[in-house]
Amino acid sequence: MSERAREPEDLARLFVERANSGDVEGLVALYEPDAVLAVAGGGQVQGSAHIREFYASLLAEGRQFTPGTVRPALRKGNLALTSTVLTEGNATAEVARRQPDGSWRWLIDQPRVVPPGP
Rank of each mutant, 00 (worst) to 15 (best):
W106E: 11
A96I: 05
T66N: 03
A56E: 14
E94Q: 14
G22L: 10
A91C: 02
L58S: 10
W106A: 15
Q99I: 08
E61W: 00
L86K: 15
E88D: 15
P100W: 11
A60R: 14
A49M: 02
E9L: 04
N78Q: 12
A60V: 05
V24H: 10
R105M: 11
D10S: 08
F15Q: 11
V36W: 01
Y55P: 01
S21R: 15
V45R: 06
A35V: 06
R98H: 04
R97V: 15
S83D: 08
V95D: 04
R75N: 01
V85F: 00
V39F: 06
D101E: 07
R4P: 00
Q64C: 00
I51E: 04
R13D: 10
A93Y: 00
G117W: 03
G102P: 06
D34L: 02
A12F: 07
P72D: 09
L107C: 01
N78Y: 00
E53W: 04
L59P: 13
R52D: 08
A40G: 12
Q44F: 12
G89L: 05
T87V: 11
L58T: 12
A29Q: 11
L79T: 09
G77C: 13
L81W: 09
Q46I: 02
W106I: 12
N90D: 14
V28S: 07
G43S: 12
G41F: 11
T92N: 03
R18L: 08
H50N: 15
R18D: 10
G41L: 09
R71Y: 00
Q44G: 01
L86S: 04
G43M: 10
V28N: 06
E94I: 00
L30P: 04
G26K: 04
A29M: 03
N20G: 07
P116C: 03
W104I: 13
E61P: 00
N78F: 02
R105D: 04
V85E: 14
A49R: 12
S2W: 13
A12S: 14
E3R: 14
L86D: 06
G22Y: 09
R4T: 15
V36A: 14
G42R: 06
E3M: 13
A73R: 08
T69K: 12
N20Y: 02
S2L: 11
A5W: 01
L14A: 08
N20H: 02
G89V: 00
E32W: 07
D101V: 10
F65S: 12
I108T: 06
V24K: 05
A12R: 03
G22K: 09
S2T: 14
T92H: 06
R71L: 13
V28K: 04
D34A: 13
R63Q: 14
E94V: 02
S83K: 04
Q44A: 14
R63I: 15
L74N: 06
D109Q: 07
N20D: 05
F15C: 09
A19I: 05
P33I: 02
R6N: 10
F65D: 11
R105T: 12
G47V: 09
E32G: 10
G62H: 05
H50V: 06
Y55L: 05
A93C: 13
G117I: 00
P8K: 03
D10K: 08
P100I: 12
Q64S: 13
G41C: 12
S83W: 03
E61G: 14
A93W: 02
P8Q: 01
L59W: 11
E61Q: 15
R112V: 12
M1A: 15
L81M: 14
